[in-house]
Amino acid sequence: MKLCTFNAGQDDRVGLTIDGETIVDVNLAYAGILNAAGEPKASSLADVVAPPEIIELIKGGASTEVALGEVAKAAAKGGLAGPNGEQAMFKADDVHIKAPVPAPSKIFAIAINNKQKFHIAEKPDCEEHPNYFIKVPTCLTGPYDPIEIPDIGIVGSEIEVAAVISKTARFVKPEDAMDHIYGFMTHNDITAHELRDTSEWIVSKRPEGDVRLTYSGRYKCFDTFSPMGPWLVTKDEIKDINNLSMVARHNGKDVQVGSTDDMVFGWDYLIPYLSAAHTLYPGDIVSWGTVISPEGVNFQKIDLRGEGGYLESEVEQLGTLNNPIKPI
């Protein structure tokens, strides 16, 4: 199932698409289906079983899955409408498609998780583990929205796959990890690479010795630095999450190429590892880490703002972001 959050002029709504071109308003369509079946309280029931807000929908149980299945089945036939004839099907081009989960409680992003870079890096003398940082929801922007880049030196692409958490949990076991993931999305973890190197660090002199500290609050977190979507693809649709090709193109030229097979730490490691420290909530996002550049390109030197144009981020089976670059 491919879900999204879209806006057709009023409130944000959960959408479902079969072909990527038509978006069905899940809540209205389900109310319409119930109404046609003679259910007297179709709208109230649909609000509970097929809520119009994505995190509420993710929290839903078996009855929500049934509702989504019915909407998907009916959508394939077409002609869906709300219980009072409201428009429930939209052309994707006619609505604003937003980040699929526009207001998550948390956004984790895993640092340096590709085999090529991880294995040559110098690491602490302990069991190998990932590092990570937190992004803020104001980073999120839709799959076709502009990425707004201030004059802060080189800002570049970091294409990633992001998972959406399905339920509240702490201390998840490796064998249960996939039960805690609802689905996956394409994400570009836009990064101010130059700012990171030149200004977001300090070497603190401490009685116990010097410590070089880098802080990711700014260089990862400017508004619009997380284009995401267009779809939240439920995990059952994905054949092999560990073998999806990933490519980022700047004005048509490949600047990052790789695969989810490049990741050092997989979901059976990451979900237990994160949940050992933090209670996970439905709708939380975990971005998996980026991939490297093709031969002859260094993606950390690609100056999106200086060169302008647009950035495409494509992950096999998940979908493609296509964001214009807007210098501000």
Partner: peptide
């Protein structure tokens, strides 16, 4: 922390406060 080696030969020690 992790000390990354960049394609240009430089190295950088990065610390991440996520955890």
């Amino acid at each position: 922390w992790i000390q990354v080696k960049r394609p240009d030969g430089s190295e950088e020690r990065l610390t991440y406060p996520g955890r």
